[in-house]
Nucleic acid binder design. Structure first.
Lengths: 157, 157
DNA sequence: CTGTCAATGGACTCAATTGTCCGCTATCTT
DNA sequence: AAGATAGCGGACAATTGAGTCCATTGACAG
C-alpha cells in the first residue's frame, strides 16, 4: 500500500509554503532547496497544482508560486487529485473492472472498508490540520515531554 | 493508495484455485484463461508463490500448481510478501527518511494509522475469509435474482 | 526598449514494473 | 526409449513514473 512519489512531493512542498504568511510568493528553485525535491521535477508539480487552482503562478522578476486559499480550504484530496495521486476510488484491489457493491469480488468488502477510510480521511483533512499536528509536535518535543496524544484535529478516520 | 498489479494478479489466481477441492492441480495456462492474467507473466507469479511455499509446482505431463496448505493458513500478508507487494512498512507518506514517532512529519500519525490498519488487516485475513465473503455473496445473488449468468459462471474480468 | 528573471511546456533520459519469448529440464504416457 | 507435456529461468521488449534539459513566454526593472 503506497502513495506515489509525486503526491508525496506535492504535500511536502505545500506544507513548506504553509510556513510563510498567506500570499507569500516563493520561487520553485527555493522550494526545491528547502524541501529537497528535485528542482526540475518540482517545477512540473507546481504547475499541476497551479492548473488545479491550488497555487497561483506569477512569471518574471519577483515571480513564483503562492497559495490561492487559506490552509483550511485545501484538502488532501484536492492535492492528490491535482497530481493524479491515489484516488482511483472504484478500482478494487483485485484490479477487476466491474466490481461494486452489487457484484463484488471476494476482497471487495474487506478492501473497500480500508479504501473508504483513506478517502474520507483525505477529504476531511486539510493542510491546516497537518500544520496543527506539526506545530503541536514540535512544541511537545521542545518541552521534552513524554508522549502526548495526537489530539483531535486530523484523525485518520 | 494502491497495491501493485502483480499482487492483484496473485490474489485473483489464488482465489481461483480456492474454488477447486484442496490438492487439485491446475495448469498455468488454464489459470490464465480463467483469471485473465497474461499467461507468460502469470507463470512467473506462480513460480514466486511456489518458491515461497504457498504453492507446490509439479512439472511434466499432468503437472501444474496446487495449494500447499489449507485456505485458512494462507494470509494475505503471505501472498503480498511472496510477490514483493505493498509491505514497506516504515516508509512515511511524505517520503522523508527521518520520520518516526519521535521526529514525525506532519502526516506521520494520520498515515501510520492507516498503514497499521492495512497491515493488521492483511495479517488477519486469510484466503478462507475471502472465499467466505465470495460464497455468501454469490448465494445471496442467486436467491435475489435467479437469472442465469453469462459465460458459464466465469467472471468477465 | 532592453536585459534579466522565473514560470512554461515539450522532448528527452532513466529506472522500475509489467509482460513476452524461447530454449531447457523434469515427468508422465505409450 | 521416444514423444508429449508443463514448469523453469534467463534474456529481452514495452510501458509507465520519475526526473532532466532547454528554448520560449510573460513580467518587471532600469
Amino acid at each position: 500500500m503506497h502513495v506515489n512519489q509525486t503526491a508525496q512531493y506535492a504535500l511536502r512542498v505545500l506544507m513548506e509554503m504553509a510556513k510563510t504568511p498567506s500570499g507569500t510568493v516563493a520561487r520553485a528553485q527555493d522550494l526545491s532547496r528547502t524541501t529537497g525535491v528535485p528542482a526540475a521535477y518540482l517545477s512540473k508539480i507546481l504547475r499541476r497544482l497551479a492548473k488545479d487552482g491550488i497555487l497561483e503562478a506569477r512569471k518574471g522578476h519577483g515571480g513564483g508560486f503562492s497559495l490561492t486559499r487559506r490552509l483550511e480550504r485545501i484538502r488532501l484530496m484536492d492535492v492528490l487529485a491535482a497530481v493524479g495521486g491515489a484516488l482511483e476510488r472504484d478500482q478494487c484491489i483485485f484490479g477487476i473492472g466491474r466490481c461494486d457493491a452489487r457484484d463484488p469480488c471476494p476482497l471487495h468488502h474487506s478492501w473497500s472498508g480500508l479504501n473508504d477510510a483513506f478517502h474520507s480521511w483525505s477529504r476531511r483533512t486539510t493542510l491546516r490540520d497537518l500544520q496543527g499536528t506539526a506545530l503541536r509536535r514540535r512544541r511537545a518535543r521542545h518541552r521534552a515531554l513524554p508522549r502526548a496524544r495526537a489530539g483531535r484535529g486530523a484523525r485518520p478516520w
